[in-house]
Amino acid sequence: MGRHLAFVAALWRTNLLSAMEYRVSFLTQVVGMMLNNAIYFVFWIIFFARFEEINGWDLVDMLFLFGVVATGFGAGTYLFGNAIRLSSLIASGQMDYYLSLPRPVLLHALASRSNASSAGDFTYGLFSFGAAVIFSGTFNGLMLLRFTLGCLASIAVLISFLVLVQSLTFWIGNTSLLTRHAFNAIVTFSLYPITLFDGTAKLLLFTLIPAAFIGALPAEFVRRFDLLQLAQICAGGGVFLFLSVYVFYRGLRRYESGSAIQVRM
């Protein structure tokens, strides 16, 4: 386990050094993404200025929600950048490289790339959490612990979901359209208050498109401790993680090499 952690840490360090070779581009993307998120959040400021609350959710709840989702999404897609392009790696035969090395294939493939803009999401998420803490007027060490736990669960479910969807490439070939729709669906649903949706829709958001585990559930848990929610977050993260690893390795048996000559620089 320690060996694998050291290996992943080395990959992350290499990715960071690589990004630092293009500092201006990196910083432009980070700042640009933060501005992008901030402009999007203005919608909710305008909305709640006019309608005050929707089914018990107010602006502070949205700040907590954006805090968890942006931090989780940013950290997840920065540290495991290939999670958003796994299907193209599989379809184009680029898994050959990872298969030929004595390291865990999935972990190696996912952590081999970092997205600069994701660092902007991560930073924005921390700002949003900070703003939520200030406006809610409640902060203590336990809240910070709950925020960390909530973000970790959010990362686990998001990355697992992306791996699960894209693992279908092993069976059905090109899944680029499905991946795009799944990605849009999970991100969009996770950024809306869960109280908008009724029973059937909620069931969907806890299973087929597990956006509730990425946004609403951890955000509510961060705001106030609830043992049941803690159990749900841990169970959700664990189940999706297990499923994604299992399905990916089952699919990997069907992987067909492209036998293409690839140059990695």
Binding site: V24, T28, Y40
Partner: peptide
């Protein structure tokens, strides 16, 4: 003129949304 145009694209998209 500039090295990276992604940020302009994201911000423009968000201006359209909002």
């Amino acid at each position: 003129v500039v090295e990276e145009t992604n940020a302009f694209r994201w911000i423009y998209q968000k201006f359209l949304l909002l």
